[in-house]
Nucleic acid binder design. Structure first.
Length: 751
DNA sequence: CTTCATTACCTTTTT
DNA sequence: GGTAATGAAG
């Protein structure tokens, strides 16, 4: 028997947090509760983040060591902010908290334990376009007779696989449910996806889903690891739990309940249960919930908007049943929005069934009624937003405290051109990601090949950039090289006679240059910034000049990439951040230059968790929201939740607008306002009437407007800011958007 | 074999 | 506007 050694309990930290003064009663209850499973239902604007950070601070103050906490957030940015806040509250200098997204924590653990699944610690992480590249190769590998009938595009195949991974349903089931038109291709699709897994594995590369799946497999198939992490992470906290999927739910429950489950897992043969589960899909096994651990999940079922990527609404709804003894906390005091906005959002979400009952009450003072603005055309809607933005700025609301939100990226197009015309500075969130642009991927491909010499995707990218090298040569080179885990060995292979003889004569000069560049990068593998600058100076700048029309802006991007890279000590850590941290645009890079306040343009999805003084929700028409394609996925209720999330971002002013006419090539279509707008009780909103000022004599009177231009201005009747008037469109460019389409008939009549 | 041009098809939301 | 598949010229 081992000797018994008792560790003294750690001294409590000097915590600056005032748990009495800083929190309301509901928050304090959640922050200071004891052990066991906890579900915190935190309505929009009720101080969810505050509660979570104070909970962490509280646990630390109770002597829980920093690395005994696992804090899972929805974005890495949120994790950084929370850790910073905890640092302020506890006075701990850089607590070694495990905080991050599921994906980044998964990556961190798999760097350590990936060998269990045949990966080494320098595995690459594939983004979506990498996945598509691999998938395209797999289709040719399998030799699908694409001509016979339309075979799903690589992009579709990737989303099938991803959906299968995140829901746990096997591919053929996914086909039947979501892609019935491809059911006939079932055999081939399975062959291709199998090949995809092989290629990925051979490249020592994981995709996003692997970071979750392999993490879960690690816990389920290796009970000693499960036990180890269950003992280390005595407290698991999960934010935005309503948007977790089955795999993520299983991961946290496996950790939180690991110490108890170990006995079960050992008796039940682990290989039989878990392998079948994960290899081919199938059910994620129901966790045996004998003695639940310290798992606190925080979320708002009303804000679950990620079903499209496998978010499992049941995770949060069924949490109390799955975890007996769950204590449920509710945060219902809203600090964000005015009572008027809250009344409207409560009214809207009431139309959903199946949710935890809660009624948010407002803490803030009374404000203006939310505005309901019917517009003729998208361009008029955009002009309204632009004019109102200028007014708000005049009234003292800076543009960076305002956001314009929409359901889909495409809805912002007319707005963007209008803002340019008005010279209103704006910032777009999302859309194409920084690191997914071709020139960024080109440059990082050099780094990837050095960091992970097996990275076939990156190597292939480099090869195809070489003159005289195409698909066929690239594939031959890959075969000739085989697999190496050593960068130096790879460089030697690249210059070996076997490889060189595959090249055409005129390709050999550039080839030598490629190898030189890679060698230079290898020498700089501890200085990502220098490595990037070397690549740029040694040749990529020339390549870009020859291949891109907008050479200048691309080089600026790359310069910013180099600046960003200064934060990292190694190429490996730099690359990992880059892939997992999607949003580089907004915060980290561009703000270096312009510090002028800018209005934010964003999808509702990306606005999650944020707030602004004034929010415009635009394009609220049937066909846009709810999105027709979404009806058979998350369903109407999820779309209503998206609408709800959008509205609840607003602190003081909320504008709901919709264009009535959709101009099209073959004439114009009349559109209905979104059902979510129509179902609102009228007394919760104030209709604003748009009327256009008489145009300058030089311009032709707009046809559609002629019927509506009885008044020359709109008024926001009785609102707090009624002194300001909508001044019409005189300042607009003479080239008026509604003149573009002479086929448009004035089919809209004001009532 | 590579490269360029032309075609058809789609574009909800993202780590 | 963007990507993917196809065909034709060098």
């Amino acid at each position: 028997m081992a000797r018994r050694f008792v560790l003294p309990s750690r001294p409590a930290l000097s915590v600056r947090a005032d748990f009495d003064a800083d929190l309301n009663e509901q928050q304090r209850a959640a922050v200071t509760c004891g052990d066991g499973p906890k579900l915190v239902i935190a309505g929009a604007g009720t101080g969810k983040t505050r509660t979570l950070t104070y909970r962490v601070a509280y646990l630390l103050s109770q002597g829980v060591p920093p690395d005994g906490l696992l804090l899972v957030t929805f974005t890495n940015k949120a994790a950084r902010e929370m850790v910073g806040r905890v640092r302020e509250l506890t006075g701990i200098d850089g607590p070694r908290l495990w905080a991050g997204t599921f994906h980044s924590i998964g990556a961190r653990l798999l760097r350590r334990h990936g060998a269990l699944f045949g990966y080494n610690e320098s595995f690459s992480i594939l983004d979506e376009s990498d996945q598509r590249d691999v998938m395209r190769l797999c289709i040719t590998d399998v030799g699908v007779d694409v001509k016979r009938r339309r075979f799903p595009a690589p992009r579709l195949l990737c989303s099938m696989i991803s959906l299968s991974a995140n829901t746990g349903d096997p591919i053929d089931e996914i086909l039947v449910d979501r892609y019935p038109r491809f059911v006939d291709w079932g055999q081939e699709i399975i062959a291709v996806t199998t090949r995809y897994a092989e290629r990925k594995h051979a490249a020592n590369a994981m995709d996003y889903d692997d970071l979750l799946l392999l993490w879960l497999r690690m816990l389920l198939e290796y009970p000693e690891l499960q036990q180890r992490y269950a003992q280390q992470f005595r407290h698991v906290l999960v934010d935005e739990y309503q948007d977790t999927n089955r795999v993520q739910g299983a991961i946290v429950e496996a950790i939180a309940n690991g110490s108890q489950n170990v006995a079960d897992e050992r008796t039940a043969s682990p290989s039989s249960s878990s392998q079948s589960t994960l290899a081919g899909g199938g059910e994620v096994p129901a966790r045996s919930a004998a003695v639940p651990g310290n798992l606190m999940v925080v979320g708002d079922d009303c804000q679950s908007i990620y079903a499209f990527r496998g978010a499992h609404y049941e995770n949060i709804l069924g949490f109390p049943e799955r975890n007996p003894g769950t204590e449920v906390f509710k945060l219902e005091v809203n600090y964000r929005s005015t009572p008027q906005i809250l009344a409207l959002t409560n009214d809207s979400i009431r139309h959903n069934q199946g949710q935890f009952t809660k009624e948010l009450t407002a803490k803030r003072r009374s404000g203006m009624l939310p505005a309901l603005v019917a517009c003729n055309y998208p361009e008029q809607e955009a002009a309204f937003v632009a004019e109102r933005l200028l007014q708000l700025r005049d009234e003292g609301t800076e543009l960076d405290r305002v956001a314009v939100l929409y359901r889909a990226h495409s809805h912002r197009l007319s707005l963007e051109t209008t803002l340019l015309r008005y010279d209103i500075p704006y910032e777009i969130r999302g859309g194409l990601r920084f690191f997914e642009q071709a020139h960024i991927k080109d440059v990082t491909a050099y780094l990837r090949v050095i960091a992970n010499p097996q990275d076939e995707v990156a190597l292939r990218r480099l090869l195809l950039m070489q003159p005289g090298v195409g698909n066929v040569t690239a594939e031959r080179v890959r075969r000739a090289i085989g697999t190496t885990t050593d960068a130096a060995a790879l460089l030697r292979l690249l210059t070996s006679p076997e490889v060189l003889k595959l090249l055409r004569r005129h390709a050999r000069g550039p080839w030598a240059h490629l190898v030189e560049m890679l060698t230079a990068v290898q020498e700089k593998c501890d200085e990502p910034e220098t490595a990037i600058r070397t690549i740029l100076l040694d040749g990529y700048a020339d390549y870009a000049a020859a291949h891109f029309t907008n050479f200048d802006s691309r080089m600026e991007d790359l310069e910013q990439l180099a600046v960003f890279a200064t934060q990292y000590d190694t190429i490996a850590s730099f690359l990992e951040e880059l892939v997992l941290l999607g949003e580089l645009h907004g915060q980290d890079v561009q703000d270096l230059h312009r510090d002028e306040p800018r209005v934010v343009l964003s999808t509702i999805h990306q606005a999650k968790g944020l707030e602004w003084d004034a929010v415009f929700l635009i394009h609220l028409v049937e066909g846009a929201i709810p999105s027709p394609r979404a009806i058979d996925e998350g369903g109407e209720e999820e779309e209503r939740r998206i609408f709800y999330v959008g509205m609840t971002r607003a602190r003081s002013e909320l504008y709901l607008s919709y264009p009535i006419v959709r101009p099209g090539a073959s004439g114009s279509l009349l559109q209905q306002p979104s059902r979510f707008v129509q179902e609102l009780q009228p007394h919760h909103v104030e209709p604003w009437e748009l009327a256009e000022a008489e145009p300058p004599a030089t311009a032709r009177p707009p046809r559609a407007a002629s019927s509506a231009s009885t008044g020359t201005r709109f008024e926001n009747r009785g609102s707090a800011s009624s002194s300001s008037r909508f001044s019409g469109f005189q300042s607009a460019d003479p080239e008026r958007p509604w003149d573009h389409d002479p086929n448009v008939d004035p089919i809209w009549e004001p009532d």
